[in-house]
Design a protein around this nucleic acid. Structure first.
Lengths: 182, 182
DNA sequence: CGCGACATGTAAGCAGTTACATGATTAT
DNA sequence: ATAATCATGTAACTGCTTACATGTCGCG
């Protein structure tokens, strides 16, 4: 009875802790740094915001100076701050290895001809190299590492983590190609 | 209209291509090498087997020498082989980065005191080092790389991939700790 | 006026986990 | 006997994606 880790809940609370935001803003934020290790669509975010309001962890403002607005600005509540603080400090076990469909294909490589194995591996390699390049572009913008009290600190760490992950993937794919000994 | 990549379907078909198996056998197989990049519980496998039978991709034998048995032995059909072959050769785009809850925590590290940051990082580090050791134990059993036509080839590749993944994770965690400059 | 970005939602369906259920076989 | 493993299933629920739906705002 605890599959429910409620990651989306805490991602939203964390973002709202920095500043009040609309559902749309949160959605955009997911497409930035967070997308290096997760993503959530607006169709998942809007219902979650409703739920958090009903749980009194956030509040929703629809008007400004008495005028009704089209935007809904969400703000974290005291209870929300507390809940998030407890979660953030929780020292949980490492996750089971992440699902990887390409590795499933690789697992069945003995059932495939060499040419096809080569095709699949080199296409993956190319794409991961492109992703790495894009990440390194982003990384270059930091000429120095942000302080660990700066909001950019987390961004910086997960970006570097994404780079290492891509490098490991590339290294693996190259090793796989070497084992094909064409 | 194609979220449905049906990974479980192809995992099962691939395993049955090697030899006929029961649902229980398949379940056990998932706990071996496949668990380095994915896992499926029996509660997901049994319904999928039913579905595959209804799609005529596999057949089910319940008896042996006319005697009814308690086991259900599944065998891949001709249509199943074809379907799997097409899937295995498909050159798909790389997946979006895998979900990682610990990185979500890291992303919010600026909201956390140094001691707690240190605690979280070092606990993760310890556990990933343990996982790496276990993987390296397994890897040592191959004194030489299996041929690319051997069924063990895939096992070997994904195992090596898991080792590189853990090493990258460990390297990242160490770098994060360095940035804390205690 | 039309296009793209802003902004918010719902419905259907697949994917996966946890818990509930049951019963047979094997080893101690 | 009794505990562990073998063996098969279902129900309820969370999580996530895709598609459907609607309307606003600013710019050229």
């Amino acid at each position: 009875m605890k599959y429910d880790s409620r990651a989306l809940k805490y991602a939203i609370l964390g973002l709202l802790l920095r500043k009040p935001m609309t559902g749309y803003d949160i959605s955009k934020e997911f497409e930035k740094s967070i997308s290096e290790f997760w993503s959530a669509k607006h169709s998942q975010i809007y219902p979650e915001l409703k739920k958090l309001v009903s749980e009194n962890l956030i509040t929703c403002e629809t008007e400004c100076n008495g005028e009704p607005r089209r935007k809904k600005l969400y703000t974290i509540s005291h209870a929300g701050r507390q809940d998030f603080g407890v979660w953030l400090r929780k020292n949980e076990d490492i996750d089971s290895p992440p699902k990887d469909i390409f590795r499933l294909r690789t697992y069945f490589f003995d059932l495939l001809d060499k040419e096809c194995q080569y095709e699949l591996l080199s296409t993956q390699l190319l794409q991961h190299r492109r992703r790495l390049l894009r990440l390194e572009e982003k990384y270059k913008k930091y000429d120095t590492a942000p302080s660990d009290t700066d909001a950019a600190f987390g961004d910086y760490l997960v970006l570097y983590g994404a780079i290492l992950r891509e490098k490991a993937q590339i290294h693996w794919l190259q090793t796989c190609l070497d084992h094909l000994c064409l």
